[in-house]
Nucleic acid binder design. Structure first.
Lengths: 183, 183
DNA sequence: TGTACATCAGTGAACGCGCGTTCACTGATGTAC
DNA sequence: TGTACATCAGTGAACGCGCGTTCACTGATGTAC
């Protein structure tokens, strides 16, 4: 493989990373191709050598975002935990003030769920595959209780969305704290 | 008050209703002033006799949407219920397939939360006031347990967002069903 | 009762702007001989 | 080792389009006398 091709692959990866961050932070619709390319250190025209359209990038950006979330929830200090110990530690991390305040580095569901729900089937398929992967990993940590995993993820997502949309930091804290007691 | 003014008030109400429906159904950003006004049976130019800007309409649209939600959760068949009986009946309604499939008539939080989180302070204040009102009413039904109300609303919101974004109706059903067991 | 004028909600053409996308081009690198 | 040509990632001007907003106008209704 010639070096030029490796360079192109690196550019592509930078575009996907930029999209993953900017879409989560500002929304898909409110992020322009210009914004993305500038963030990746490129100019707008080059975008279409990598992706067919802006919409085609959304799936790849979602995959990158979910991969980050899986690392946060199942690796590092949380890797060895199981059952309720994992649930407590993971809840603390997902429902941290840090996660509330930095959507651009956080879970794609509260940040992009509503836009994904209105997207074409291919995007929703990509999103679904990632949600299934998260639910698989969660229920594996929760003694195979898949319904519990769904309930836990739902509570995390809703609390994060609410805490971000509300204006008062006190109310946001209270919502996240209450959600941390989800069983 | 002359009749012309009453007519203007009726037009304004129609614009707010249209916005409340269309914003929830298609998103704030993906609904144009033209769309809104056409839906209200008017033409675009007239909009600015009623609202200073498109952004100024979002707060009013949110209030209308939350009023609808409060009617759905606390009036009619649910008016007399308290404690766990209310929780079960309200969960069944919020987590119905109907609510999943009709965001334009549903709760504003899963539909517009992410866009509100990025909106100006005035919009977030309006949103917060409505969330507080819902939480007040919920905890009143739940023996004053405000943390439980926050947890329950979070689970409802997250499950609805997930079920709408995912492609498979089977997975969507499973998520809503699991969330119905939230305590 | 009729006429002239004022009011005002709504119309629709027009504005400037930013968007997604296209395309002729550049310039660095790789290949042939 | 040097020269000519091919390749190809990225550039940036340009495109058509839809958006939020403005504004001169219309036409129905209300008021004065």
């Amino acid at each position: 493989m010639p070096e030029s091709s490796e360079q192109k692959a690196r550019s592509r990866a930078r575009i996907v990373e930029a999209a993953s961050r900017l879409f989560r932070g500002r929304g898909y619709r409110d992020t322009s191709v210009d914004d993305l390319m500038a963030d990746a250190g490129l100019t707008r025209g080059g975008f279409y050598a990598h992706f067919e359209s802006k919409a085609a990038l959304l799936g790849a950006a979602l995959e990158a975002a979910f991969a980050e979330s899986r690392r946060n929830l199942f690796e590092g200090r949380l890797a060895a935990l199981r059952g309720d110990a994992w649930r407590r530690a993971a809840s603390e991390r997902y429902l941290s003030r840090e996660h509330q305040r930095r959507p651009e580095e956080g879970c794609a569901v509260p940040a992009l769920g509503a836009e994904v729900a209105r997207a074409e089937p291919e995007v929703r398929d990509a999103f679904e595959a990632e949600v299934r992967a998260i639910l698989d990993a969660m229920s594996e940590r929760l003694d195979g209780d898949r319904a519990r995993a769904m309930r836990l993820l739902s509570t995390w997502v809703g609390a994060t969305l609410l805490s971000r949309a509300v204006h008062s930091p006190r109310l946001a804290d209270a919502i996240r704290r209450a959600a941390r007691e989800a069983c």
